[in-house]
Nucleic acid binder design. Sequence first.
DNA 1: ACAAAAGTGTTTCGACTACACCCATGG
DNA 2: CCATGGGTGTAGTCGAAACACTTTTGT
Lengths: 298, 298
Amino acid sequence: MTPGEPIHAELIAVVVAVTDAQPRVLTLLDGSALPAGPLESGHRSLQAGLRHWVERHTGHRLGHIEQLYTFADPDRSRAGRSISICYLALANETRTPLGGRVSWQDWYRFFPWEDRRVAHTIIETIVKPGLSHWSAGNPERLTRAARLFGLDGEDWQEDRALARYELLYEAGLVREATRDGRPAHGEFVPGATLAADHRRILATAISRLRARIGYRPVVFELMAEQFTLLDLQRCIEALTGQTLHKANFRRLIESQTLLEDSGNFSSGSGRPAKLYRFRAEVLAERAEAGTRLPLARP
Amino acid sequence: MTPGEPIHAELIAVVVAVTDAQPRVLTLLDGSALPAGPLESGHRSLQAGLRHWVERHTGHRLGHIEQLYTFADPDRSRAGRSISICYLALANETRTPLGGRVSWQDWYRFFPWEDRRVAHTIIETIVKPGLSHWSAGNPERLTRAARLFGLDGEDWQEDRALARYELLYEAGLVREATRDGRPAHGEFVPGATLAADHRRILATAISRLRARIGYRPVVFELMAEQFTLLDLQRCIEALTGQTLHKANFRRLIESQTLLEDSGNFSSGSGRPAKLYRFRAEVLAERAEAGTRLPLARP
DNA sequence: ACAAAAGTGTTTCGACTACACCCATGG
DNA sequence: CCATGGGTGTAGTCGAAACACTTTTGT
């Protein structure tokens, strides 16, 4: 079947958690790469293998796991062909402490332009000029850039994070591009890099997760057992990088049958809020309608 | 990195076309399995390799290609571990003739219950009793079955084809289940089988494609260069297995900027219809808003 | 004339938005 | 008291869904 060339196969995990209204991703201790491991035998499925492997190396129990993508391009390997099967996994950061070989990193450290909750000027001052230079005289490139980065009144689609990263790569505006031998077209866009194509894999995970939120209640994997509506809102805002409309968000959530009242109340600054939990049926069946998002006006 | 065990890697392709308002899938000549081939070296990417391989073996030019899923469960292999990387590809059946080693099969031959354009009794007379028997006394199973198969007034979600197949498998109502050693719970549900887990892979493809249609214009890969609005409607109906509301469908399509008038008209029975084509920009950028579907009343 | 399909008008209904406002607690 | 966050009411807008109806061809 396969030719004589050797085949390497590895698993790469993008493990995501949200704490303090900030999405985090699990990396090696120095934050330079995603955790990866060999494809082990003896597990019923890849999922099970991955779950076991991550839990053993991090002391974390994982929630939802889904396959992201399989890369098998020859230029990824040192010799022969190397296959990387990538997974997205959701965890609750606070639940358990970490082992010593990995750490949590704010995912916007790698994609500052994806966080639109805070006003920043990256897109205006760096991305836009860089892309302009790259598209010089090419209207196709220009409209593509405008659409992806919401430039000429186009609106921002949060789930196109991967396409945005790929555009920056193509335009030579991220370090990985020149590392791979592409010409630069301006100042590099700020943002930490990762080993090999791990930043691209992380962008894939972000896109996937942001798209999922829109039509499936995946968030609960990331929440504590009980939470206020604002906690939930902050969590979704963290993932999508967008601010939501509070009043409408509450109504939207309450109109769905996702949550149930726990009877408890939160303490802290401001009026105490009801604490909710996800309904048991939703936890069992993740197949429900989903969570529409009421954006706040810019 | 990898342990000493040998690793097999293969590509499996689900190639889809629509002709005569019927979706078809490419199989081996006898319709018993999906086309599969070794992972060849010398291509820039898996996509490119797959495209080349399919085009060489079938004489077909492929349109859109996307990765579906990677299976690497040990029980799939004869010895060691076997990795199957599955792709979904869209083609235009009529464009070129086939080579001698493959054939087109109506995909509803494998999933008769997924075609809701025609009235049939499979769900009422076979699926429902079988699932009832399987869920006996287990309310969780019962609601799950009802939700997926639209049983107690629940509505039918066409993109959950994979979940439906998996439920039937779990309940022992498809042949593959007993082949794998599961107990049966009634008469088998009609529908041709495929080798190994290829039917499951096809179900994955159907789910993915049906979900895609909802928010991205992928259909154009399956259409001739020029077509009437009814042609387009029939194509989408074929894929989703649902009937659409004609008047609203037209308005919906026309309100988006997907199509342009070709100036030509169709002939045939009935009043001639304008022939449209997809706008060039849409062909270049498949990133648009997407196609909402106005269902017809049952 | 009739069948078959193209195409248009209009009304209803519900969802999403935005804005305004009141409530409860801690400091 | 005021800052912070919880929580409610409501009017406007937009798009989806349903129904009815006219138009143009082939037989």
